[in-house]
Design a protein around this nucleic acid. Structure first.
Length: 579
RNA sequence: GCCCCGGUAGCUCAGUGGAUAGAGCAUUCCCCUCCUAAGGGAAGGGUCACACGUUCGAUUCGUGUCCGGGGCACCA
């Protein structure tokens, strides 16, 4: 067996050589090749002659002819021709495809890996949902996308660090702590003063119940007393809520932090468990509060202040984000002295850079897109390079059941949780459906389709291809490592060459998907590979008398299995050996 | 009003500066004495929203228009 030749770089090098020989005046041009969709146009095509014809002032077909005449012979090229307006079409020798089988078997899980990242470090921050309740299906999409993208970058030569930003410092956490305490008071028998804009979900009642079970009436106070001097809810819902928070802090004293901490830990643990079951893990759960505790927020504002980026107006401190293309300046410190979320977010991004990452990726819900100019502006205002930050927006996912939109609203507690979705359709289908769409596009998630154990379901379609291969190899019963020596020159049937071409395209798909931050391309490639495998399965028999041909075919499906497994694993989907 | 995202087959959506634009579902037809039919094969189905521009070449890039969806806090 001769060494493996990477076809695309081989052809591109040959054409580049021919171009320099035939048309030296063209200078140093990289010669791109493409896969024509029309089979009669060959396996690869090159349009360099048309691209250069204008600057060289010559006929593109003649130019192509000159390049072709200078093309060195290659065992990989069966024939070449000029077609259309000046395309050079290359038809490959089957060897070009066949050699892929031992190559894939040798590389195994490394097949598809590449090094375009060059060892750069990248921090991918995703999910980062407020720990104020269960994750819902919207977070699920960010989780699936972020996890798959991280995997994609990790096999593309990047050192990937996965991080979840925990918003444990803000008003939302206070609302959760308050909500928990108010439910606790109800448990103690106090009349309910629970406002409609506090967290309504059942999980709050459960936390309250757990606290009551453990501590009895220890934290009981008069609920009615909390309402004294409170603005009427109808007049000022937020003012009413804020008053209750202040009253809770005063009434509970040091015990307030118990509720705050309890609720935070409880929700965070739940979130972590949920994501863990979903196959999504993080290297770091980064606390927003820590940025206050260690002075990063203050230091950040000092830097901005020193750079002349802040000013005072109406009692608040503002950042001049309009200098950097934002629509209006933004408050970083309120009239009441409290910092805004934006202030700690600037500090967070500064912190990320100070940790030495070459590249930052933030995955946000698309509703935050208006937030981009101010964050990038803040980086610039601190003398940092905003291009080090890439923000990937993930659009909303809408669930459909029986063709009907499934209702979902946030605060009221009427939402479908990620956990419910996983239980209903399974982790594999959920992971797959989430990344089947481009992340920046709205996703209609068809629950009935995701649940169906039928040929309609693309997850099962791919997994079934994997399971079929496993069954064949199992029934054969031989040692798979012996297939490395199979005589792959016998793989010449149309369905075999189709399958080989699909497998050959996988590394390029990975490369493109990584460059475009688009794991959905991997999902589509897997569908194509599975389709080619199923077609092959129906066209040819594997377990046949002719052991030489049999081994060649088994080697091919074993290689297919490797690629399917690599792709499914990347997307966080299991590879069942039987179904 | 401003800013994002979209408009491709009946439906849900891929896709690409190239030569005849794809897949699944749905519709019609065919294939298990054979390694899992959760499979395969075939047919029909299109003004790639519209106009203008850039280009040897535009569904792809740019501008404008129309139509959807989302966002525009001293919330996070």
């Amino acid at each position: 067996m001769t060494a493996y030749t990477d076809i695309e770089s081989h052809l591109s090098a040959l054409l580049g050589y021919a171009l320099r020989e035939a048309v030296p005046e063209a200078g140093a041009v990289t010669v791109d090749i493409e896969r024509p969709r029309e089979a009669s146009h060959g396996d690869y095509a090159c349009s360099i002659a048309m691209k250069l014809s204008r600057s060289l002032r010559c006929n593109p077909r003649q130019l192509a002819q000159k390049i072709l005449a200078a093309l060195p012979p290659s065992p990989m090229i069966a024939r070449s021709e000029i077609a259309g307006a000046g395309f050079i079409n290359l038809h490959l020798h089957p060897l070009a495809w066949q050699q892929l089988v031992p190559h894939i078997l040798a590389l195994g899980e490394q097949y598809g890996h590449h090094d375009s990242g060059g060892g750069q470090s990248v921090l991918v921050e995703f999910v980062s949902a407020n720990p104020t309740g269960p994750l819902h299906v919207g977070h699920g999409r960010g989780a699936a996308y972020g996890a798959s993208l991280s995997n994609l970058l990790a096999i593309s030569g990047f050192r990937v660090f996965r991080e979840y930003y925990v918003n444990d410092a803000g008003r939302q956490m206070d609302i959760l702590a308050l909500s928990t305490w108010l439910r606790y008071l109800e448990h103690c028998g106090e009349p309910s003063v629970f406002p409609a804009n506090a967290y309504q979900g059942d999980y709050v009642r459960q936390m309250a119940q757990a606290i009551h079970l453990q501590h009895g009436d220890r934290y009981r106070h008069s609920s009615q007393a909390l309402l004294e001097h409170a603005p009427a809810y109808a007049d000022a819902p937020d003012g009413h809520l804020d008053h209750l928070i202040v009253a809770a802090k005063q009434t509970l004293g040091d015990n307030y932090s118990y509720f705050h901490r309890f609720a935070l830990n409880e929700q965070l643990a739940d979130c972590r468990q949920d994501l863990h079951e979903f196959g999504v893990s993080f290297d770091e759960w980064f606390s927003e509060q820590s940025l206050y505790d260690n002075g990063t927020v203050q230091r950040t504002l000092d830097v901005l202040e020193a750079n002349g980026q802040l000013y005072e107006q109406d009692g608040a401190r503002w950042f001049r984000s309009t200098r950097y293309g934002d629509e209006k300046d933004r408050v970083v410190q309120r009239e009441n002295g409290l910092f805004t979320y934006f202030a700690s977010d600037i500090a967070y991004h500064l912190n990320k850079l100070e940790r030495g990452f070459d590249w930052l990726i933030d995955i946000w819900g698309a509703d935050h897109h208006g937030y981009i100019p101010r964050v990038k502006g803040a980086m610039e205002a601190m003398g940092r390079n905003p291009d080090q930050l890439t923000i990937a927006l993930v659009q909303f996912a809408v669930l459909y059941r029986n063709g009907q939109k499934a209702a979902m609203s946030t605060r009221s507690g009427e939402f479908v949780t990620l956990r419910e979705l996983r239980q209903e359709v399974g982790n594999d289908a959920a992971r797959f459906f989430y990344v089947l769409r481009k992340s920046d596009q709205h996703l209609d998630f068809d629950l009935d389709l995701a649940k169906s154990r039928s040929n309609d379901n693309p997850v099962y379609y791919i997994q079934y291809a994997h399971a079929r291969i496993c069954r064949v190899l199992e029934q054969w019963g031989g040692d798979p490592t012996s297939l490395d020596e199979a005589d792959i020159s016998q793989l010449t049937s149309p369905s075999e060459l189709d399958l080989l071409r699909q497998l050959a395209g996988y590394p390029a798909t990975i490369r493109t998907a990584a460059r475009e931050l688009s794991p959905h391309l991997v999902a589509y490639a897997l569908k194509d590979i599975a389709a080619a495998l199923h077609a092959y399965y129906n066209a040819e028999q594997f377990l046949i008398e002719d052991t030489s041909l049999r081994d060649a075919r088994l080697a091919l499906i074993q290689a297919t299995r490797v690629v399917l497994r690599n792709g499914l694993t990347l997307l966080g989907i299991s590879c069942p050996e039987q179904m």
